[in-house]
Amino acid sequence: MTEDQTPPAPAKDPMKGFRGVQAGTLIIEAIVVGLALPVVATLGSGITSAQGWTVIAIAVLLVLLSGLLRKPWAIWVILALHGGLLAFVVALPAVAIIGVVFLGVWLWLMWLRRDVATRMAQGRLPSQQNQQSDQHSQR
């Protein structure tokens, strides 16, 4: 392949599958955050307090964001929600730990996404390799 040619697009969009992984991660995270409500009720000010409503709101927003991952701003909202979880570090360290763990997961996912995008731009994805060999054999 010469430098002026762009690599062929993969047969299947890898980013579509990657958004599925992200959506699944958001659902799992929402479940884990929801399971923190008994911790808020026991160690915090109760579920009916501002702490409780904040944890509930974050869990609901995580579920809603799982359907909005196509939007470019969705990742920034997800990271902001992790900031909300980290804000519990003084009042409820157990909830902040959830934020730290899933923030690490999301940073790893963003690194993977960048790697897939780079490989796709360079034409190094396995699905692109098959297309390139088909194009060369047709010549």
Rank of each mutant, 00 (worst) to 15 (best):
T42E: 15
A41K: 12
S133P: 05
L68G: 04
G99S: 06
I97K: 09
F18V: 00
R124F: 11
V39I: 13
I47G: 00
E29V: 03
L112K: 03
L92Q: 03
L103V: 06
F18I: 00
A87L: 09
Q128W: 09
G123L: 08
I98S: 01
A121W: 12
V100C: 12
A11M: 12
K16W: 08
M1F: 13
L68K: 08
R113I: 02
V63Q: 05
V100T: 05
S45F: 15
A94D: 13
W108L: 11
P38L: 06
T118C: 14
V100N: 03
T42D: 15
L37T: 11
A80P: 14
G46E: 11
L85R: 05
A121I: 08
M120L: 09
G84D: 09
Q138E: 11
H136I: 11
F88M: 07
W108T: 04
R139W: 13
F88V: 06
L26I: 03
A41Q: 13
I97W: 10
G67P: 08
Q5F: 12
A91D: 10
I75M: 15
G24C: 04
A11D: 11
I56K: 08
I28E: 08
Q129K: 12
L62V: 08
L43W: 11
Q122D: 15
V55Q: 01
L125P: 11
F88D: 01
D4V: 07
V90D: 14
W111A: 13
G83H: 07
R19I: 00
W53N: 15
M110K: 00
G46N: 09
L26S: 03
A94W: 14
G52D: 07
T42Y: 13
L64A: 10
S49R: 02
